[in-house]
Design a protein around this nucleic acid. Structure first.
Length: 216
DNA sequence: GTTGAGCGTT
């Protein structure tokens, strides 16, 4: 119990790390410092970032010198709204399970995944939405007719659209027709009204989610 | 442009 919340180097340092979740993506360590510094002396604040994009992952680590300060910070900052989001402050843990920390060493008895998907890419939902809308749209052959009427023909339709058709055009159509206008999604819609169940359309997000679970 | 369960580096 006493070891709970210990830092990664309990033998050398008796510092306590706090894990701050629900941190805004724009929040930086400098912004969190004054908040946590009020409850105690903050040794250091670290915010993991993505190695690829460099964007913050949405959580931060705050190190205190004493557990009392850390606990106080949790009691005071946990649930507090910061940048429009409620901060979740709790003791940080090293490795898959801090409880398995043995004399500063982490013993892994359960190498199996945590059952969570490490990829924080809800952006796929956008694509999913696109698919959904596109799929439904393609179900209706009317869309194809509109393409021909608008002058969509060969693969040049994109260039054509960029030069000839202006957003105002779509807007007008949208307002007139009342149906959502066809913007320009990443995947160029083929002239074939039928969807191609092969390449071009990856498996449904369902599979992706199942893969995330790892265990059926 | 966006996103949101979670656990980390110099």
């Amino acid at each position: 119990m006493s070891r709970f919340g210990r830092s990664g180097q309990p033998e050398n340092r008796e510092s306590f790390s706090l894990l701050v979740l629900n941190v805004s993506f724009r929040t930086t360590a400098d912004d969190l410092f004054p908040l946590f510094d009020r409850y105690g002396k903050v040794l250091d604040i670290y915010i993991p970032r993505d190695h690829r994009t460099g964007d913050p992952r949405g959580f931060a680590f705050v190190r205190y010198n004493y557990e009392d300060e850390a606990q106080d910070a949790i009691d005071g900052l946990d649930g507090m709204r910061f940048d429009g989001r409620a901060l979740m402050v709790q003791f940080a843990k090293y490795g898959p399970n801090a409880e398995k920390i043995h004399r500063g060493r982490i013993t892994e008895e359960n190498p199996k995944p945590r059952g969570r998907c490490r990829s924080r890419s809800p952006r796929q939902r956008y694509r999913e939405d696109y698919w959904d809308r596109d799929y439904r749209r393609r179900s209706q052959s009317r869309s194809r007719e509109r393409y021909e009427q608008a002058g969509y023909r060969d693969g040049d339709h994109r260039r054509h659209r960029t030069h000839s058709i202006s957003p105002d055009y779509d807007r007008k159509r949208n307002r007139h027709s009342g149906s959502p206008v066809l913007k320009s999604p990443s995947h160029s819609r083929s002239r074939s009204p039928r969807r191609a169940p092969h390449e071009g359309i990856p498996s449904k997000p369902r599979d992706g989610r199942a893969a995330c679970s790892g265990s059926p």
